[in-house]
Amino acid sequence: MRVWKFGDDIDTDAIIPGRFLTIYDPAELAKHAFEGTRDEFAREAREGDVVAAGTNFGCGSSREHAPLALLGAGVKAVVAKSFARIFYRNAVNTGLLPLVCPEADAIRDGDTVSVDIAAGYIEVDGRRLAVEPVPWFMKEIVDAGGLVAYAKNLDEVKTCSTE
């Protein structure tokens, strides 16, 4: 499983351009992931590959097609120094794991990677890099496998005004 390394401020238009937003099937979206900015990704990404990046990954448009395109390509986790807010939530909600890794700069394109979430680290070419856990209130969603699975079992929610 290899690393696809990107830079800072990777926006969701780059992950999946606007002209493909009538597509909702992850496998179909994956055919156009990073189209125009990194064409080989769609051709060569394999099940279990990891996307790594610098700061502000997933900035811009709220399109959930972005995490879906990565999931469709077989990517299960994105490791970045920081994430844009909406992408982070969309990733958790759809079952793509966003991992904040302060040392993400040390990850190189093509590195071999394995992810051990329970242990709180990733292993990149034999080196362990610490990753921050998802916030507690999102952990239940991650554990359920996404927000859909989480919400299926709920009949109602207690809001802060009714609890």
Partner: peptide
């Protein structure tokens, strides 16, 4: 839509969310 923050001009707390969060909102209103 990420530019939902526009309604801050009306003094609202307005923010963009993804479609799955919106599915939750459509169901629960929260």
């Amino acid at each position: 839509d990420s530019h939902t923050c526009t309604y801050g001009a009306a003094g609202a707390f307005a923010t963009g969310i993804g479609s799955t969060d919106m599915g939750f909102v459509l169901k629960f209103g929260a």
